[in-house]
Design a protein around this nucleic acid. Structure first.
Lengths: 232, 232
DNA sequence: TGCCGTGATCTGTGATCACAGTTAGACTTG
DNA sequence: CAAGTCTAACTGTGATCACAGATCACGGCA
């Protein structure tokens, strides 16, 4: 098909469904820890806030329930799951295995573009941690950006998707605390582990990359567990 | 609350929503390969078949779309994704990493009950493969039972759930072929790898368990790739 | 013969309504 | 004052309707 030259410029306008946008918004709330474990979520009020009918919200919520990022209780109320310490430890173990594996693959397969985005993300987070009064929600966001820059470098869309689902579960537990507590960021552990991971990926050292990411996850998990907010 | 003794026997009747049941049915169709890649699925006709309105089907489908076990094309038709050979290789790599890890964990953490169910499942599949004209759909089902008996032994609900999602994607590609082609079953590779995996888990040899499962997955994937039914 | 408009019939998406079940609070009753 | 009861306002679930967009076959025109 040969087009008028003017039409070669137009690109297909992205027709996102309302349901998809509702999902993106809710997922972002969860992953960044702005929804607390146990918090209830009404379809109707959520719909009103988003300015749509409840249908798109229903689709978004049913997806998140499938991901176990939300749950519907027996009383038919939707809420963010409350995680027991046991469940949290299981989640952490799985994250170490899978995200560690992704980091190792990233060290093997990373492209130059990957290296650039990883370096940029690491620098941005380091910069934020060095100011006198860091913007904690922003630091949480930058942390996510760095990690996913690493995981993208593994060149495996399926792996990235799995990790995203894990973060959806971990977000409310981890980032809720981190958004309000400057201690861990101030301690600088995360910054150090990120630097280690970046260097390992740059030099192609898969084992070191895995170790650095595993240490970062472990460190954050221990911080959460030590705060003792989780049920037995 | 103290109850009349007679009431201690009653268990809460499971109030599954129609949506959940529709999801279970569709997921089973996918995982066992009874839905072919590229096959279209109409919400309305599916609803009619299941004897419900389209609402429960919509919920089920939106979940499966979130899992990427189904996809909605730009033309707004729902279908089973067609996987390129590249995507299939990625999926296989991820499966080897994650299911291999699960098998290794199973070798470490398995309980006696796990060992029993693994042994039972392995024997059932071996028996089926040894009859003159094996029931292939049944063999596919038994294969799944064995694998998940292994993964359950890793004592990690989250890991099992991730693997289930992977099988949802792989089912249409792998099991569609296996349901109709006796070659691979007759070759007896799967039976051998299963036996290796069982022994390794029984003796607590994590590395051997991982190797056996990885070999089983690789072997099946190579069989599919060699048949050349996937797009470039 | 080949091409393009056109209309009937599909598709999923979104809104709205109906319903059963739960919950919390005011009220009554002992 | 305490316990039970009833009502009103929620909850998610399911069904139904309305709609825009896609598809395809048919028919007219060049």
């Amino acid at each position: 098909m040969n087009l008028p030259t003017a039409l070669t410029l137009v690109e297909p306008l992205d027709r996102q469904t309302l349901g998809a946008r509702a999902y993106a918004q809710l997922a972002d709330l969860l992953i960044s820890g702005r929804l607390a474990p146990g918090e209830k979520l009404s379809l109707r009020t959520a719909a009103e806030v988003l300015g749509v009918s409840i249908m798109p919200v229903r689709e978004a919520v049913s997806r998140l329930v499938a991901d176990k990022a939300l749950e519907v209780a027996a009383n038919r109320t939707v809420r963010v799951p409350v995680m027991s310490a046991t469940q949290f430890r299981d989640l952490t173990k799985v994250r170490i295995a899978i995200e560690g594996h992704a980091a190792a693959e990233a060290a093997r397969l990373r492209s130059d573009r990957n290296l650039a985005s990883i370096a940029t993300a690491e620098a941005a987070m380091r910069a934020e941690s060095e100011v006198r009064t860091p913007d904690l929600p922003r630091a949480v966001e930058l942390n996510k950006t760095f990690h996913f820059a690493v995981y993208e470098a593994a060149q495996s869309p399926i792996l990235v998707e799995i990790i995203r689902a894990l973060w959806l579960k971990a977000g409310p537990v981890i980032n809720l605390d981190l958004r309000g507590n400057p201690d861990r960021l101030a301690k600088g552990e995360a910054i150090r582990f990120h630097a280690d991971a970046r260097k390992a990926i740059e030099t192609g050292d898969a084992d070191a990359a895995k170790t650095a990411i595993a240490a970062d996850i472990t460190s954050a998990a221990n911080f959460i567990l030590s705060r003792g907010g989780l049920t037995a």
